[in-house]
Computed example of a mutant assay.
Amino acid sequence: MSGVGKSSVVRELAVRGYKAVDTDDRWCAPLPDGRQMWREDAIQALLDVEDADVLFIAGCEENQAKFHAQFDHIVLLSAPLETLVERLATRTDNPYGKKPEEFRRFLDDVRTVEPLLRRIADHEVVTSMPVDDVVTTILRLVDV
């Protein structure tokens, strides 16, 4: 979900020496309705490259399910709605969620998409704790 801390987790994983990709950064193509989809050719090429022992991919798009069979673990990052709303309102590195129509879409995604993600996730990590603790938890869960 937007505001859950995906970008922060990716940055911290990279600092720790892991290959980590935030799919919001050049891995998606915009759709006419304002949403986006993973660029399937780019994501497949990313998955095909074997230049790291472990690859972390952060993102959530409707077509991600096409790649689930290639993932060893699916970790859902979540946070209480109040926390997500506050993060969207106060973040300065990503404008998504500040426009009323984007905020309505965000609320709808939390209500409808997050439960679907929860069902397919191998693990769930609540990102209310410091990002260092979130990353440590993720690494423990995926046995890295």
Rank of each mutant, 00 (worst) to 15 (best):
S2T: 14
G5K: 05
V10T: 14
V10H: 09
V10G: 03
R11V: 10
E12Y: 04
L13Q: 02
A14W: 00
A14D: 12
V15T: 07
V15M: 09
G17I: 05
A20W: 07
A20Y: 05
A20T: 09
D22A: 04
D24N: 13
D25F: 07
D25E: 12
D25T: 12
R26W: 11
C28N: 13
R35C: 04
Q36Y: 15
Q36E: 15
M37S: 11
W38P: 01
W38V: 12
R39G: 05
E40M: 09
I43F: 14
L46Q: 08
V49W: 08
E50A: 09
A52W: 09
A52M: 10
A52I: 13
D53S: 13
L55M: 07
L55Y: 06
F56N: 10
A58N: 02
G59W: 03
E61M: 13
E62T: 11
E62K: 13
Q64F: 11
A65G: 13
K66E: 07
K66A: 15
H68E: 10
H68A: 11
Q70L: 15
Q70F: 00
F71V: 00
D72R: 13
H73Q: 07
I74W: 04
I74D: 01
V75P: 05
S78Q: 10
S78G: 03
A79W: 08
P80Y: 08
P80N: 08
R87S: 00
R87V: 06
R87A: 11
T90K: 12
P95R: 02
Y96S: 03
Y96R: 08
Y96I: 08
K98A: 02
K98F: 01
K98M: 09
K99W: 06
P100E: 00
E101Q: 15
E101L: 11
E102F: 01
R104P: 00
R105V: 01
F106C: 09
F106G: 00
V110E: 14
V110K: 01
V110N: 03
V110P: 00
T112Y: 14
V113G: 08
V113E: 12
E114T: 14
L116S: 04
L117S: 05
A121K: 01
A121G: 03
D122Q: 01
E124L: 12
V125S: 09
V125W: 01
P130G: 04
V131D: 03
D132N: 06
V134N: 05
V135I: 10
T136N: 11
R140V: 05
V142L: 00
V142Y: 09
V142P: 04
